[in-house]
Design a protein around this nucleic acid. Structure first.
Lengths: 144, 144
DNA sequence: ATAATAAAAGATATTTTACTCTTTTATTAT
DNA sequence: ATAATAAAAGAGTAAAATATCTTTTATTAT
């Protein structure tokens, strides 16, 4: 469904939101541990998210990554589009170059429903929504 | 969603069903052209499908791949499970090793609905169902 | 029997994704 | 000013997915 990069991006964002809610910064090291992902790889992804203003960052001591209220209130779709592009919403399930309702692959009609569900899920839910589950201990960001 | 291999497997199966309905064989070359995929790569996948009895094959002149009525009536899920495994139905959307309703990732509940929709689609629709759309000219297997 | 045909199988190559390591730059506390 | 800290950036490595090429085996028509 998502690339590894995108999974990390979503989990990291939720982790940052959960940790400080924009007050203080979280270091990559802590984030990587918290979501059980390779540190330097996550760093790259966070740099990308930071460049595109999905999250914020500060260098130096007490530096790290953080999110403003506005950033926390963004739909998860924003992150997905940024990291994986819009393929998840637009690509043909059978990989046809130009699959559309007027020239559909055999699975097009059936798959449209699925894609709509995915779009809906990513659009309606914000980082905050998922973070709330975490805070309420109704969800976790890693298992072993 | 699916691997390239799986996309080819599904398209090839529909193509074989469409072409002959089990009466005569279709050569890889023709299949590869019909679904716009690399011939030798498709050959590998068809060999796998043949070994697992999802399709049938014959060597020599007039040889090729074909499908029996029974094979054509199988749900597409069979092919997906064979090529990609059950990850699409079971894997965590955020990549957690042990994500479940009792120990869920933040997106688990929302994503369950999606997975159910996918399972439903793959279980309810047979190769024949998708082939019918093709025969009725209501769908195509390749575009350029 | 022999030549032609087409799948089966094995080996190799390319591309993409995932990950790691090292150096540079900005910030802060002393 | 300086040393410490942490992100930014760049370069490189590893593994998996995708694709190609070559040889072998089975079948059929002549």
């Amino acid at each position: 469904m998502f690339s590894k990069s995108c999974e990390y991006a979503i989990k990291a964002s939720i982790f940052i939101a959960q940790k400080r809610e924009g007050v203080q910064c979280v270091r990559v090291k802590e984030i990587a541990k918290g979501i059980n992902a390779p540190e330097h790889f996550v760093a790259k992804i966070l740099q990308e998210l930071s460049r595109k203003k999905v999250i914020s960052s500060m260098k130096g001591p007490n530096g790290g990554f953080c999110m403003s209220e506005a950033q926390i209130n963004k739909p998860v779709l924003d992150i997905v589009l940024l990291i994986d592009g819009d393929g998840i919403l637009n690509n043909c399930v059978l990989g046809l170059e130009h699959c559309s309702s007027s020239n559909p692959c055999p699975m097009h009609l059936e798959y449209q429903k699925i894609k709509l569900g995915i779009k809906n899920m990513l659009e309606k839910n914000t980082i905050r929504d998922f973070n709330n589950l975490l805070v309420a201990k109704e969800a976790v960001l890693f298992t072993d």
